[in-house]
Design a protein around this nucleic acid. Structure first.
Lengths: 117, 117
DNA sequence: TTCTTTTGTAACAATGTTGTAACCTGTTCC
DNA sequence: GGAACAGGTTACAACATTGTTACAAAAGAA
């Protein structure tokens, strides 16, 4: 955002507000909810290629999203020195705490999708 | 299963899948979760300018988001012939069904924001 | 030696999204 | 007549994001 905001929102701490916004921006990135969804549905560690296949996106985007999730402490990346390389992703404790909300959100989404077909 | 049957099921799955994706794309648009958040926090009908102020975005974006929400049946727009014009937005029943998930998601977001400050 | 595989990264053109500025409607007040 | 207000819309330049293509590393198979 190019504009400098000097507004005073009376009741809320600005720095907390920006952290909340950061997280909402993170969750709003393309394929982010999809990735969390497939990782939520399948509690086993998932490989890069498997995630990519399930969310139906390019390597670039999947790599970017997983990187962002790792930076924010929502997924753990584990690389094994196999040939060819094997990398597994799992949700962290923090992300698991988000699971119930996501699950009921996805349920709502599925219900809507059903009734609008 | 016959070929015709499996084709029909495949296409049903596809269309359901695309509806799910539509909704995820909708929810992933910028400021969308913010708008749902402020409308969730304040159960009274909210005016355009009030929403705009609370999510801190441009008229263009807020109008676009509210329009999309209306098209998807998540908000109701009510215009009153006052001078100057008054327009109120409220969540629909459908959106209210999403509230619990959103609320616990926002709680999670706030908790994370707190601990990362 | 060259091919294959997985898991990425780099560069870049195409595409999508955003805010800004200007404008519009309709009515009341001066 | 002109200003002021809420609630937008439109055009467009600036900015952000995406997919594609090319590439790499490491080692076993052919």
């Amino acid at each position: 955002m190019s504009q400098v905001q000097s507004q005073r929102m009376a009741s809320m701490c600005d720095s907390a507000r920006s952290h909340v916004d950061d997280l909402l921006v993170l969750l709003s990135k393309s394929k982010m909810l999809n990735i969390l969804y497939v990782m939520n549905c399948d509690p086993t560690p998932l490989r890069f290629s498997e995630i990519k296949k399930r969310v139906n996106s390019s390597s670039t985007t999947v790599a970017r999203r997983l990187g962002e999730l790792e930076v924010h402490g929502l997924v753990t990346r584990t690389a094994y020195a196999t040939v060819p390389a094997t990398v597994e992703y799992t949700l962290t404790q923090d992300a698991v705490a988000l699971q119930p909300s996501l699950e009921s959100m996805f349920e709502w989404v599925l219900n809507r999708a059903d009734s609008s077909v």
